[in-house]
Each structure stands twice: as C-alpha cells, then as structure tokens.
C-alpha cells in the first residue's frame, strides 16, 4: 500500500473520535483486535491456522490486572510487562505446538486455549472467575489522569503503536526469518536442506504472534476496564482468524483493516437491527467470495510480494 494512502488512513482514524467521540472506544478496541489478528496473520504465512490466540490476548490482559493489583501503576511499564508475559506464554506453548502442522496445529491451539479459559473461569480465588478482574486506570509517565483523558491517551497511543509495531512486523517479514516463515508453507524440506532450522523459525514466529496478541489484549483490558475469561474463549480466537482473513494476510495493514471493518460494521449494524449478525454475516460472505485476498488485496493487487 502506498505510504501516502496509509498515512492518510491513519490521519482519518486519528480525527474520527473528534467528530464522533463514541467512536474512540470502538476504534481502540478495533486496533487492539488488529494487533491480535496480526499475530494470527503472521502464523498464517507459514500456513498455520491458530484457533487459540485469544489465550495470549487474555493472558496479557490478566497480566495487566495482576500487575496493577501488585502495585505497578505505569501505563508503559504495564504494557511492556504484559506483552512480555504474553510472549513468555507463547514461548512455552509454542515450544511443543510448532512441531505440529495443519489441522493438528489448529486443534492443539484450540485445546490449549480452552484449558486456559477453563482455568480462568474456575480459579475464582485467583482470577475472579466469570466476574473477571478489574483493570484500573494507570498513571501515564507519572501523571494520574481521569478516565476520559486516559481513554483518549490510550487511543492515540494505540494508534501510534499500530504504526510503529506494524513497521517492525513488516521489517521482520522482510527479513530472512520472515521469508523463511513463508517458505515453511511451500517447501519445508528445501528449508532444512538450506541449513535453516524450521523449528526455530516457527518458534520465533509463534512468540512474535503471541506478543502481538498480548499487546492487543493489554490494550483491550485498559479500554474495557475489566478482563474476563471470555477474552480467551474459542469464539474469540475464531474471531481473530476471521479478522485476519477478512483483512487479508498479504500485508501488515490487512489485520488492522479487517479489525476496523468488522468493528465498525458491527457498531453500525446493531443500530439498525437486532439481527445485526445477519448484516455482518452477509458482508463477510461478500468479502470472502469476491475478495480472496481480503480487503487489503484491493490496495495491494499490483504488488507481487508486497507486505
């Protein structure tokens, strides 16, 4: 996607809450889900579908809640530590999950995430059970803000992170590691014969994707003000895959485009009818049938290998 279009799109998103303040929450949540969908999209490059990435989304959100309760009260520190927490969970789970392929990988991710969900729901004394845990408003660089001001800071911080993290992920996908990741999908044998360890390539990708999902979860936790087990439910994982495919896995912007499209469509549909699922479903069918490369594919059609 030409830089100028991307810059204009970011500018429009930045200005939208000025015109319609209610959109701020929707957009923050969309960006949060965009990070998690980007994590899913990273693995999709290797042909691996994870139906369990909501686990990392939830893990980092819970990490924020626990750390805040433990006395950590700085937004930046909470984000960093919670993302590291998500990455750590990703490293542990990924160390054995990346040995599997195709349906086995998808199902094992689902299974592990559902174990995590069950633990979150049942360990009432630790996680608060289905009531979840509150995520208090933290200080920003030592400044204590009211909730409305904090939510504005969170939105613009998320937007800034979307650009910076997006560029970093694009850099990663352009590196030999990123190309090796795509190569896993097409020819794992040749990759081994090049002396490149497929297991390490996939584990790094898995940790990166878990960290991205974790970043999304932390932002969502701050935006909603509470983390509940449903963050990790399998439908949430399926939602992330849907966003990634809908937006298009041909490039980093795809995940965010998909998330913004779906969240805005959902917000608009609920104002029109109670049967909003029907509208969302119809829109999805249209996109999937007529845009095989996702919405991003419309912008990136002429790029042979563009990210």
């Amino acid at each position: 996607m030409p830089t100028i279009i991307a810059a204009a799109a970011v500018l429009v998103i930045a200005l939208l809450p000025v015109a319609a303040p209610w959109l701020q929450f929707v957009l923050t949540l969309a960006i949060a889900k965009g990070f998690a969908a980007l994590g899913v999209a990273v693995l999709l490059r290797a042909g691996l579908i994870s139906i369990g990435h909501a686990m990392f989304f939830a893990a980092s959100a819970y990490a924020v809640a626990f750390l805040a309760r433990a006395g950590v009260n700085d937004l930046g520190l909470l984000l960093i530590l919670s993302v590291l927490g998500g990455a750590l969970v990703g490293a542990v789970a990924g160390s054995f999950l990346v040995r599997y392929r195709a349906i086995f990988f998808a199902m094992l991710n689902l299974a592990v995430s559902m174990v995590f969900y069950a633990l979150c729901a049942k360990l009432y004394g630790v996680t608060g059970g289905t009531d979840g845990k509150p995520v208090p408003v933290p200080a920003v660089f030592g400044v204590v803000l009211g909730e409305p001001a904090f939510k504005s800071v969170l939105f613009y911080l998320s937007l800034g992170l979307m650009v910076l993290v997006g560029l970093a992920v694009q850099r990663y996908l352009n590196s030999p590691l990123g190309h090796a990741l795509s190569a896993v999908h097409t020819n794992e044998i040749r990759l081994e014969y090049l002396g490149i360890p497929v297991w390490a390539v996939l584990l790094i990708a898995y940790v990166v994707s878990a960290a991205l999902a974790g970043l999304g979860g932390a932002i969502a936790g701050f935006a909603i003000g509470r983390v509940v087990p449903d963050f990790a439910f399998w439908t949430a994982s399926g939602h992330l895959v849907l966003i990634a495919v809908l937006g298009g896995i041909g490039g980093v912007p795809g995940a965010f485009i998909g998330a913004l499209f779906l969240e805005l469509l959902h917000s608009a549909a609920v104002t029109v009818t109670d049967s909003w699922n029907l509208i969302v479903g119809m829109a999805l069918i249209i996109v999937i049938m007529f845009m095989p490369k996702g919405i991003y594919g419309l912008f990136a059609r002429k790029e042979a290998t563009g990210l």
Binding site: H179, H185, N187, Y193, L194
Partner: peptide, 15 residues
Amino acid sequence: QLFSAQRVIDNMMLA
C-alpha cells in the same frame, strides 16, 4: 525443491 510462491531471486537470497 523451490519456494514456489516466492520470486526466483528471493529463493536465491534466502539460500
């Protein structure tokens, strides 16, 4: 045994 979805030169540079 190639990386069929990638450009010829990308196959080479990855090697």
